[in-house]
Write a protein that binds this DNA or RNA. Structure first.
Ligand SMILES: [Mn+2]
Ligand SMILES: [Mn+2]
Ligand SMILES: [Zn+2]
Ligand SMILES: [Zn+2]
Lengths: 139, 139
DNA sequence: ACGCAAATGCAACAATGTTGCAAAATAATT
DNA sequence: AATTATTTTGCAACATTGTTGCATTTGCGT
């Protein structure tokens, strides 16, 4: 088991349960975005669907993972960097989704560009989601 | 009835039906994004849910409307400009969704900024979706 | 007006997500 | 370590969203 797991849960005042350990481990290993369905498949009947929904919700609230908007409106999740905390996400990087294999990447080193809007719009968050083909799927 | 309705349908080789006329009229009047649910409510039992799904699908394919990715992963649609055509959308403008009232705007005059990705990623589309509070909801 | 092609409505289904509540697991206390 | 208090889980039931097949209806070209 990944050493950071128990640590992360404790730091966020979450009790250490099997499902939380397992789901957090998936994110630490996979190193990419996961959808609810991915987790359900990979865990293979081990946990109830509802538990997975609630665990993901909790992780998002605590700033452990963030949601990723995608062009096809499917919900994906990925690990946050350390500076996210309860109710305060700072994941202002670009996301990429491969049209071919569906893999979703957090491009941590590509920050979202500044956007200038007409007067009257107050910006709270800018999401940039790029689609195309990824490294593996280049033909 | 809006004069452009029949024209638009004919130009796209679509037969003129009640549901298509009515749904297209909603987009021409509303001047903003519509969700499937909005259309269902506004049309009030007039059409079957399935017909609305199929009409929206057809309009997207023909380049009459485009989908809008949102931070909360709900599906919205808005009118395309005239230069979109069957299978070829050119709606590369920024979208704004108000956290307060939920209204979604096409900011036609704000083009999406260029994004530079690490080598290996081939870009086919960039979506920028901004959240915040809109003109009406400014406190 | 007629016949063909396309669109619609209905039913049935699938996928995704939410809620209430009793049982089980975890954490805190003695 | 045993007991109690608190959280979390699993289950069932339900809601929402979207898809598919097929018979019926509608629109369109002749
Ligand atoms: Mn990310
Ligand atoms: Mn738009
Ligand atoms: Zn790929
Ligand atoms: Zn608003």
């Amino acid at each position: 088991m990944h050493p950071r797991i128990v640590d992360t849960l404790k730091r966020n005042q979450l009790s250490i349960t099997d499902s939380r350990k397992k789901i957090l481990e998936m994110f630490l290993q996979k190193k990419g975005a996961l959808a609810h369905a991915d987790i359900e498949q990979q865990s293979g009947e081990e946990f109830d669907r509802v538990t997975i929904y609630r665990t993901l919700q909790t992780f998002v609230e605590k700033g452990i993972i963030h949601t990723i908007p995608t062009a096809d409106n499917s919900v994906r999740y990925a690990l946050c960097k350390d500076d996210c905390s309860e109710g305060h996400h700072h994941d202002n990087h670009v996301h990429f989704m491969c049209d071919h294999c569906g893999t979703t990447y957090c491009l941590d080193h590509v920050t979202v560009p500044a956007v200038v809007l007409p007067a009257g719009f107050k910006i709270s968050q800018v999401d940039v989601v790029v689609s195309g083909s990824c490294l593996k799927c280049q033909q």
